[in-house]
Design a protein around this nucleic acid. Structure first.
Lengths: 195, 195
DNA sequence: GTCTATAGGCAGATAGAC
DNA sequence: GTCTATCTGCCTATAGAC
């Protein structure tokens, strides 16, 4: 999942987002500060406020950019992979990549901190999961009509379950620093869906 | 899962733990302060330091008590339920109870914050998951020999997958404030294991 | 056990010069 | 765009009286 920059944001703003993104995904939104970013970037916190008025706005931009990058990846998967099972595997692969960098899914970690988030960020977290659920339900429908997946019940619920399982597998893999934990749960999940 | 107090801790210390427990499970370890507890308890933060020297020690006590309560619950499940499927359902029920109180599993939320935790707390988080995995693997073995579960591959890995799925389902249910999301994923998980 | 008083540090944020 | 200077508030923590 490569970087795809098409905003009218400055280079500095992008670097701020890069650093903040890593900090959120590894420590959580409440466990990093403007000071952390400023130190790493070699500027002052006052300068940070020029690019993002406050932490809430920074957080909002963070999720939006993250979600957009995922959207792009999902679009590419749709274009490049004809088969549902391959799509699901690729989807899980997106999370595996993050985990390889010792990062939790941003929206997963924000879900854990949900009650403490500024309103604007909450909406974006929900939207992220809704979008993925919709995309997954579509893939499931396709796999079902292709005869590649054997599914019982609501596709939306199955999609929810897939997201839950992947997020949970990432979450538990974190303390163990162990990608294998994620991989085995993922393969098992896919195997259970296959016809 | 009722409270089971058998420590030589004071009543105040237990009340501190009760409040802190709720705060951790709803906001995370990094998003609550001694001040929050003090305000709610009607004493000063200085007094808090008498009972728990620092936030790290409080955190450690918090996980230990939580894990102990779970241990007790697992023991009761073993004693009261002869059948593996019922045990698994009861296990999932423990998490459902927490979620009904709008709480995330303590160790699940601490997993998300793992990188920022004091060393002593990290060990306890790992131990929690290890213990549950061992217990679940035992239940799976029993269900298999009873002919009630149809399992392929490593029981330890399946146990890992169960924990991941339950934690993930809780995590995603949080932003939606929706217990149904957890329940549907849970039933689906159990159905997939049944013979 | 609980208090007052206090410390030092860091948080997010703003004003205004350059 | 970035800086210095500054603010207010909160954080964890300690000393010592009661």
């Amino acid at each position: 999942m490569a970087a795809a920059r098409a905003n009218n944001r400055s280079r500095t703003a992008e670097r701020i987002l890069d650093i903040a993104e890593r900090l959120v995904q590894t420590r959580g939104f409440n466990a990093f500060s403007y000071g952390d970013i400023a130190r790493e970037l070699g500027i002052t916190t006052a300068s940070l406020h020029y690019h993002f008025p406050g932490k809430a706005e920074l957080g909002e931009a963070l999720i939006k950019r993250y979600a957009q990058r995922f959207s792009g990846a999902l679009g590419r998967i749709d274009k490049e992979m004809p088969e549902a099972v391959a799509k699901l595997r690729a989807y899980a692969g997106l999370y595996a990549e993050e985990l390889a960098g010792k990062r939790m899914c941003m929206c997963g970690i924000l879900a854990a901190e949900y009650q403490t988030l500024p309103e604007a960020m909450r909406g974006e977290v929900i939207r992220f999961f809704d979008d993925h659920q919709r995309w997954l339900a579509g893939v499931l429908a396709q796999g079902q009509s292709q005869g590649k997946l054997r599914l019982a019940g609501s596709l939306e619920e199955i999609a929810e379950g897939i997201i839950s399982t992947l997020e949970g597998a990432m979450l538990i893999a974190l303390p163990y620093g162990d990608t294998a934990r994620f991989d085995s749960t993922t393969s098992r999940l896919l195997a259970a869906l296959r016809a």
